[in-house]
């Protein structure tokens, strides 16, 4: 009606390969962003000096490490959780850098708006917290999950089934879908307002609406930067909470 040409969902999230066609090692934009989400934090850490009085990149790196320590590890697990700091820090950095490419020009795509990286991270998180449960409690971890002793006998089969599904299926599924859906929704929002701005620019009569649409686009871009950080934090924090629930099942 207004000449609005909204791209199909394939154009929003599907990216052609740069090389390799459909081989398992083929590279597209998502693969490239994944590699950059690995390379950029690595470069940050490598460029950071190791001085007693921090300057430049060292400030940023130490702030991130301290943030993970004080806002994720200690509140969720406690001091004994510090052995998981490398994993939680890696998850936070990988998710954040995978997300933030949504607002970086020429990329404009969060890697986590595709299901691959959220699924991988959720499987790793599930593997770790289930592994921690078996490591510290042995078979009792599985037994307490599917046959919880704190529940009345009549309810144990039902609660056990719910617990089993929660721990082994729903938690990792929810971790992956939460990240994927949030980033995909943000990506679609930005595309919507971007397309709207382009369309309004072409329509002489409606160009007066363009400032509102453009303002929304700018505001949403800022909001998506916040969401990129928030989703990385939430993913790392939930992983820590699940690890803690495996360390201390009674809680």
């Amino acid at each position: 009606m207004f000449g609005l040409e909204y791209p199909s969902i394939d154009n929003l999230v599907g990216w052609p390969t740069y090389f390799g066609d459909d081989a398992f090692w083929a590279m597209n934009k998502i693969g490239l962003i994944s590699l950059l989400a690995m390379a950029i934090p690595t470069a940050m850490f490598l460029f950071a000096k190791r001085e007693l009085v921090p300057t430049g990149a060292q400030n940023i790196v130490e702030s991130i490490v301290e943030f993970i320590d004080t806002q994720v590890v200690l509140p969720a697990i406690g001091p004994e959780g510090r052995r998981y700091t490398p994993l939680l820090l890696s998850i936070f950095l990988f998710v954040f850098w995978g997300n933030i490419f949504e607002v970086i020009p020429t990329f404009h795509m969060p890697a986590n708006a595709r299901m691959a990286n959220p699924a991988i991270l959720a499987i790793i998180a599930a593997g770790v917290y289930i592994g921690v449960g078996f490591k510290y409690h042995g078979f009792a971890y599985l037994k307490d999950t599917i046959w919880p002793s704190f529940v009345p006998l009549a309810l144990r089969p039902l609660v056990g089934l719910i617990e089993f599904l929660t721990v082994f299926i729903i938690r990792p599924f929810a971790l992956a879908v939460r990240l994927f859906a949030n980033m995909l929704a943000g990506h679609i929002l930005l595309v919507t307002f971007g397309v709207l701005c382009i369309t309004l620019w072409r329509l002489d009569a409606l160009v007066v609406i363009l400032p509102f649409s453009f303002t929304m686009l700018v505001l949403l871009t800022g909001f998506e930067i916040f969401v990129s950080f928030l989703q990385a934090f939430v993913f790392a924090l939930l992983t820590a909470v699940f690890i803690d629930s495996s360390l201390h099942p009674a809680h």
Partner: peptide, 20 residues
Amino acid sequence: PATYELFWGAIAFAILYLLI
């Protein structure tokens, strides 16, 4: 997800984790 996205995602995260 496509297989190659899973592949590069897993490789990138594994490298990042091991390096960190």
